[in-house]
Each structure stands twice: as C-alpha cells, then as structure tokens.
C-alpha cells in the first residue's frame, strides 16, 4: 500500500458552452517500477497506478493505461470540450486494488 497518496486536480470553475478547457491532474505516488533492488539486493515489488480515467457526467473523457516507466507523482494535463454544466470524476487505480477519486464541478454559463 503506497503511503501519502493524494490526488490533486485543477479544473476551471466555469466555462462557456462548447469551450475547450485545460485540466491538470497530479497524484502523489511512488510508482515503484518493480525493476529496482533494495540495499540487500532484493527486488522491490512493483507498486504503481496502472490506470487513470476521467469522466464527465458519466461519459469518458480520457482513459489511460499506465506502465511502470511512468515516473513518481504522475502528472496529466489534457483538454476537454464542455457542452453543459456537470461533474468531472477522476479515478486512479492502484496495483494493490485501491482507487483514489476526486470530483470537480464546472458551471457552464
């Protein structure tokens, strides 16, 4: 179980209908690749976030399969077109089965 895993997300609070907005996400996570060895020469078991998804009102915005080469504290920045007011849901899925979730509301004027 990775410690101190905190998702962080930045989404504008409001947008015009059909506007393309930029979303930034970051989650603090060690992303242990499974390739490294400790001081005694034992393999450190892999522990990464293997999937990241973002949905808007239930519709998929982005769905990322993540691999061990991705560095510590993975950061994603992407764009989305917002047709209406609603909720972005961000989900990170850990190797150990835990999921970390954050949501952001956006109001379309």
């Amino acid at each position: 179980m990775a410690e101190n895993v905190t998702p962080r997300v930045r989404v504008p609070k409001e947008a015009a209908a059909g506007e393309v907005i930029t979303i930034k996400t970051l989650i603090s996570h060690p992303m242990e690749s499974g390739q490294r060895k400790d001081k005694e020469g034992n393999l450190i078991p892999r522990s990464i976030i293997n999937r990241f998804t973002c949905t808007f009102n239930g519709e998929t915005v982005i769905d990322v399969a993540m691999e061990p080469a991705i560095s510590t504290n993975p950061y994603f920045e992407f764009q989305a077109k917002v047709p209406e007011s609603g909720t972005f849901t961000f989900t990170w899925i850990d190797d150990d089965g835990s999921t970390y979730e954050d949501t952001k509301e956006i109001a379309v004027a």
Binding site: N4, T6, R8, R10, K24, L26, S28, N73
Partner: peptide
C-alpha cells in the same frame, strides 16, 4: 503551486 513539485512536500508537512 500546481506545477511546483516542491508543494507535494509542503502538503505532506501540512498533514
């Protein structure tokens, strides 16, 4: 602050 990786440490310290 969102881009500053040092702020992750700051958040840890806040806890």
């Amino acid at each position: 602050d969102f881009e500053n990786p040092g702020m992750i440490g700051v958040d840890n310290a806040r806890a």
